[in-house]
Simulated scan of single mutants.
Amino acid sequence: MTELAGTAGYLLEAGLLKRARRSGWWIAGIRDPESIAEHSWRAALTGMVIACLEGADPARTAMLCVLHDTPETRIGDIPKIGKHYLTAIAPEDIAADQTAECPDRVAETIREAVAEFEAGETPEAICAKDADKLECLIQAVEYRHQGVSTVGRWIESSLGALKTDVARELAQEVLGAEPLSWEQTRHNPR
């Protein structure tokens, strides 16, 4: 076993997020909801944008967004209603187990990022948490435009959780936007 075997195992485990679905959307009646990885990808992009506009570190914010749901490989995506009935291990503890066989630098980077996100105190963590909620709102708006009428409470709870002015303003823009309006915009290439 080489020094990187634990890291390889972590990366293989993280791949599960590409197949694991966001379970809260099943409650809303979505037959084939987005995967956790799909959510994390757009949350990272959203977090980068929010951080740019809020004066936080966009790269660190994106990393927090990419890693924030990695503990779900071990416990699944517990919907909000399920959290009232279950007691789950803290994400920081799960990340410690997930990275136990990784080289110290890798393990420390992942563990610190998950802990920072969960604490929600740094400017980057605040932007990342807003990105997590804003991405949920964006997805709900897309589902609503596809004819799903039961996503209103996801939109409202996401709106209520936003902390930064940029995220709140961006949410209002998303709510008023047509999801495919970008397709009608064409600029002349140079």
Results as ranks from 00 to 15, higher is better:
Y10Q: 00
G55S: 05
E142K: 15
E112D: 14
C65V: 11
E142A: 13
C52N: 12
E183H: 06
V141P: 06
L86M: 12
V114H: 03
P71K: 14
I155Y: 10
A56V: 06
E72M: 13
A100L: 04
L17H: 01
T46K: 02
G55F: 02
A14S: 13
C102H: 01
S40F: 02
L11R: 11
S158C: 09
R144V: 02
G24W: 04
P71A: 09
I75D: 09
M48C: 12
H145G: 01
I36P: 11
G15V: 02
A107M: 01
T7G: 01
T2Y: 04
L180D: 11
R22G: 03
V49R: 15
A14I: 01
L64I: 14
S40V: 05
T46V: 07
L53V: 00
G147D: 02
E156A: 15
M48L: 11
D77E: 09
A119I: 00
V148D: 05
L137D: 10
E183A: 15
T61Y: 03
P179L: 03
P179H: 08
G6K: 00
G47N: 07
H84Q: 11
L12Q: 05
A161C: 07
L162S: 14
C136S: 14
W25D: 04
E121M: 12
T150R: 07
P79F: 05
R42V: 12
P33N: 04
V166M: 04
E54C: 13
P123R: 05
T164D: 07
R168S: 08
I27D: 08
M63H: 11
R31L: 14
A140K: 14
T87E: 10
L86I: 08
A131R: 15
S149H: 01
A95C: 07
A107I: 00
A90L: 10
L137A: 06
T46S: 07
R111S: 03
R60E: 07
Q139D: 05
T164S: 12
E54A: 14
A90N: 15
D165P: 02
R111K: 12
K83C: 04
K80H: 10
L170S: 10
C136W: 05
C136Y: 05
Q172D: 08
Q98G: 00
Q146I: 00
P58Y: 00
G76V: 06
V114L: 03
G24Y: 05
E183F: 06
S35Y: 03
I155K: 14
D57F: 01
L159V: 09
T61E: 08
E72H: 11
E121G: 02
H187I: 09
K129I: 12
P58A: 01
A113H: 09
I89T: 14
L16S: 10
R42L: 05
A177T: 03
A128E: 08
V166K: 08
Y143P: 01
L53W: 08
R168I: 13
A8T: 02
W41D: 09
E112M: 11
E3Y: 04
L45C: 10
L159R: 15
I75G: 04
Q98L: 15
P189R: 15
P91Q: 01
P123T: 01
Q146K: 10
F117P: 04
A28L: 12
